[in-house]
Simulated assay, not measured.
Amino acid sequence: MRIDILRKNILEAGADAALVTSEANVRYYSGFTGTGSQLLITPEKKLFFTDFRYTEHAQAETDFTVIETKSDERVKTIFEYARKEGIRRIGVDLESVPYCVFKQYLEQTDEDSIIDVSAQIFSQRCVKDEGEIELIARGAALNDEIFTHLCGVLKPGVSETDIKAEIIYYMLKRGADPAFDPIVASGRNSSLPHAVPSGRKAQAGDLVTMDYGSRFSGYCSDFTRTVALSHIDKEMQTVYDIVKRAGEAAFEALKGGAKARDVDAAARDMIAEAGYAEAFGHGLGHGVGLFIHEAPTLNHSSDEALKEGMIVTIEPGIYLKGRFGVRIEELWVVTKGGFKNLTSAPRELIII
């Protein structure tokens, strides 16, 4: 089915065949879990190009015809096969092609014969099938489980790097991989949206933001919660409540056919009305899949329409420079009738 859709899309783009190069796209269309390989998909054939290290691996995991080549002869060999198949114009996911490799393409064909089909591939990938949704939901469930565990581990004196290690260890013990390097930010570090965990030890009165995602079979999930240690002041509670309500406003706008920018605006307007417009400087959310960040993008300028099967994050935040920050993130599936939340961890502020 995925291959059929790709063939249709590339023909509409004016290409005769697709050269798929990125690891994620190769996995999406072939099921191959290794690296260093490319696909040539023609109207009639599915060819898999790899080297000695992965020949047996590819034969076991895919139904493609596997062609073993040396890495330094790969591009030449691919284009030779394309010419044998009568391919004149080839669609390539150019967003993942380094310039040095692109120059090798130009040694084999002219630039007008290469069509960028990155947008067509990403558009296809952003709508998930049942199997993809199941894998991402599995990651979301583990994220909830990890959060419950962390609430029992986090206390004054525990460092950010200790919590990061706990997150990764818990994932690995349960058969998952980290979808990205976990973020753990305590105290004033929580004002940094993408803080790098440090040796700073959490203190009573801190807000602690934890952002991480579990990955199963290549599919990413995403999760963020901010908790408090021992006690917090009135402003921290106020900011937390605003972020929580902003997320809820976005949930109400999240449905099939809605514009991504309108969902963003629902949360952004609430934060702005509360006087914190300048403290929410990133987009509201993004799609997840084989990449942790993929289409659609939910921000003020995104004209994308949300479609059934898309999985997106909703993650409003407020960051007061040098003081503290709050972010709450859920993972949602757009359904025919609305949406479904894959995240079940409490949204109310937890004071540990």
Rank of each mutant, 00 (worst) to 15 (best):
M1N: 04
R7K: 15
K8W: 00
N9Y: 15
I10Q: 02
E12G: 05
E12F: 10
S22Q: 14
S22D: 15
E23Y: 11
E23D: 15
A24Y: 09
A24Q: 12
N25W: 15
V26D: 15
G31K: 01
G36S: 15
Q38Y: 07
Q38E: 02
Q38F: 08
I41W: 13
L47Q: 00
F48D: 10
T50C: 14
D51M: 06
F52M: 05
F52E: 15
R53S: 14
D63Y: 05
D63C: 02
T65Y: 10
I67C: 06
K70A: 12
D72H: 14
D72I: 12
D72P: 05
R74W: 04
K76N: 09
K76Y: 02
R83L: 13
K84M: 12
G86M: 05
G86C: 10
I90Q: 07
V92W: 01
V97T: 11
V97H: 08
P98G: 03
K103R: 13
E107V: 09
Q108A: 13
T109L: 06
S113G: 06
D116P: 13
S118A: 07
I121H: 01
S123T: 08
R125A: 14
V127E: 05
V127P: 01
I133Q: 04
E134D: 04
L135M: 10
I136C: 02
A137C: 03
G139R: 03
A141F: 10
L142M: 15
G152P: 00
I163E: 04
E166L: 00
I167E: 10
I167D: 06
I168H: 05
Y169S: 13
Y170G: 00
M171D: 01
M171G: 02
L172W: 00
R174T: 07
I183F: 01
V184M: 02
S186M: 05
S190A: 14
L192G: 07
P193M: 11
A195V: 00
A204N: 04
G205W: 12
S217Y: 15
C220R: 13
S221G: 14
F223I: 04
V227D: 04
I232C: 06
D233Y: 10
D233C: 13
Y240M: 14
E248A: 07
A258N: 08
A265H: 07
A267P: 06
I271S: 08
E273R: 15
A274G: 11
E278I: 13
A279H: 15
H282S: 10
G283P: 05
H293Q: 11
L298W: 08
A305E: 07
K307N: 10
E308Q: 12
G309M: 01
M310F: 07
P316C: 09
G317Y: 00
L320I: 14
G322Q: 09
G322R: 04
F324P: 05
V333L: 13
F339Q: 12
L342C: 06
S344H: 11
S344L: 03
P346Q: 05
